[in-house]
């Protein structure tokens, strides 16, 4: 009976949502007459005055840079909350870890794959302003590499101090670049470096610096999440 009511409710909701989206239209160019959309402004600004190839990167880091700073802070808070929630006194009798030693094939294979995965992650976030990718994607890929090592080796440890130092340094770099822009350009995260030429590795002013900092920060945070949860004893 309860399920029936819920299904009925969801059907009504789905009907109205669908009606709304049929009105919007799929693949149309939602233009209002006489108004220049934000999209065009961002695209022109990106290619003409910033010389960055990837528009998503320039929006995430430059036009909406403050939001990204907030997002990275939220991730940091999530990691802290995770450590606080899962806190437990260690070394109690009769406990068994989730981890157990993997077979020879898995350990050898992960040792081979680990440098390649970290290299791919670094490539993705260094070239974030030229090709698809960026700090978040590269950081997640590096965290995946650490996950592989943590699963393969029973006693592979990542120092919590190292992680927090890397994370703090990256955060300070991000905020420092923003404040530097405030001093020299007049607003937070203002560009103060030469923008270079389009499709060059050194182009876009401060965008690559900030994205590399974001990459390190995200990698450290997500590795911390995985490490905390994996070493949780059930």
């Amino acid at each position: 009976m309860k399920k029936f009511v819920v299904i009925l409710l969801l059907a009504v909701m789905g009907y109205y949502i669908s009606i709304t989206f049929f009105d919007i239209g799929f693949g149309d160019s939602h233009l209002v007459e006489g108004v220049v959309p934000v999209k065009d402004a961002y695209l022109n600004e990106t290619v003409n005055s910033l010389n960055v190839a990837n528009t998503v990167t320039s929006i995430v880091v430059n036009f909406r840079g403050f939001d990204t700073l907030g997002e990275v802070t939220v991730l940091f808070l999530a990691v802290t909350a995770l450590g606080g929630i899962l806190y437990k006194k260690r070394h109690q009798a009769g406990e068994r870890s989730v981890l157990f030693s993997a077979s020879k094939v898995v350990t050898s294979g992960s040792k081979l794959l680990f440098p390649a995965i970290v290299l791919l992650g670094a490539y993705v976030f260094i070239h974030g302003h030229l090709s698809p990718g960026g700090g978040f994607q590269g950081g997640v890929i590096i965290a995946t590499g650490f996950l592989l090592m943590l699963l393969a080796y029973e006693n592979f440890t990542v120092g919590h101090n190292t992680l927090s130092v890397i994370e703090s340094l990256a955060g300070i770099t991000f905020a420092g670049v923003g404040i530097w822009g405030l001093i020299y350009g007049g607003s937070f995260l203002e560009n103060f470096l030469p923008v270079g030429t389009l499709n060059d590795l050194f182009s876009g002013g401060v965008i690559p610096i900030i994205y590399i900092a974001v990459g390190f920060k995200v990698a450290a945070e997500l590795t911390g999440v995985i490490y905390t949860v994996l070493h949780e004893k059930g």
Binding site: N54, V56, V98, P132, G133, Q137, V140, L147, V225
Partner: peptide, 23 residues
Amino acid sequence: DVALTEAAIGVALTTIIFIITIR
């Protein structure tokens, strides 16, 4: 960009964190 993020986070990290919780 979004496809890369979703592939890395959704397929690898979310799945593994659910599996650890189930364990």
